[in-house]
Design a protein around this nucleic acid. Sequence first.
DNA 1: AAGTCAATGTTATATTATAACATTAATTTA
DNA 2: TAAATTAATGTTATAATATAACATTGACTT
Lengths: 169, 169
Amino acid sequence: MKKIQIKKEVSKNFKKHNHKLCYETSMKAFHKNCLEKNLKLTPLRLKVFELLLKDHRPIGAYQILDMLSKEGFSSTPPIAYRVLDFLIEQGFAHKIERFNAFIACSHPGSKHSPTFMICRKCDKVAEMCEKDSRLKLDKKSLSEFQIEESIIEIIGICKSCNQLETIKC
Amino acid sequence: MKKIQIKKEVSKNFKKHNHKLCYETSMKAFHKNCLEKNLKLTPLRLKVFELLLKDHRPIGAYQILDMLSKEGFSSTPPIAYRVLDFLIEQGFAHKIERFNAFIACSHPGSKHSPTFMICRKCDKVAEMCEKDSRLKLDKKSLSEFQIEESIIEIIGICKSCNQLETIKC
DNA sequence: AAGTCAATGTTATATTATAACATTAATTTA
DNA sequence: TAAATTAATGTTATAATATAACATTGACTT
Ligand SMILES: [Zn+2]
Ligand SMILES: [Zn+2]
Ligand SMILES: [Zn+2]
Ligand SMILES: [Zn+2]
């Protein structure tokens, strides 16, 4: 089996890229992880994950419900929230608090607290791993607070949108 | 006029401290800033700020509405949200995205994006200034994304709650 | 085949937030 | 000062997000 090599650059999410490959890689990882952890990969779960993978933009629970309904799935709120809970719990998706919306994880397989870059022009989101984003607290704070989880969402403008703006002017 | 000296330690929010002084200092800063910036400090705005200052715990818009109603203010949702918008816009309050709740700012006077430590036991929140909390992004990311604002919320357990837990065991 | 449990389905309702327009109070201008 | 303007508050209605509680289904065990 040929090993697929993808460039692990976070900012690719904002640019034109081979999203089909991007999608397939994530989907494969999802299948693999479910298999390994003996998690049931039901049609509903698969469909929701598929929706989350569409285009690096977070989507709301009610958007998901709309799309589920169009595809013939049941679509009352708990349907979406339960699957989202499952995906988040298992490290396959994240909630973007800023937008009350959800996105597929870029490093699936275990619970973690990544940093998100959110472009306010194109609404795309990139997930950074620990290596690329570190929160440095002073010693005193560290000693006084036991960190369990962190929400880090950076809002700004991605390079693609920035360049478009520059060209326009 | 005697200058009041307060210890600028963020973690004080989690501990027993002279909250009366804490409260009065914030309230004074609020008055001073409104005066300087020529902002109208109306009874409603004052009351909401007062509520936000109560105990270092974020409160929801509908909690605020309840309290306003008890004090004889009008209390339909826009009343709360408008005042909160004003306070946030002017740098006197922040929204804690994790809880959809609001808290008085610890360094009032200008818009900023602080880091919050949120204790999941006692629900108290401490706001850290830039000096005590820095987000370090790698060069590549910095060059590809123009940061405008950040949401940083750390969830964990404060020292006070942690000690209580240890004693119990 | 009966029992168990996880997943999904369903109904109802809670919580958070905004849109749109009306009234009042403060400030500015004539 | 009276009229005009604007900022703040009041009001009604509704949108958007999320959960509680219970029913049904289907897979897996025993
Ligand atoms: Zn992609
Ligand atoms: Zn962009
Ligand atoms: Zn205090
Ligand atoms: Zn605590």
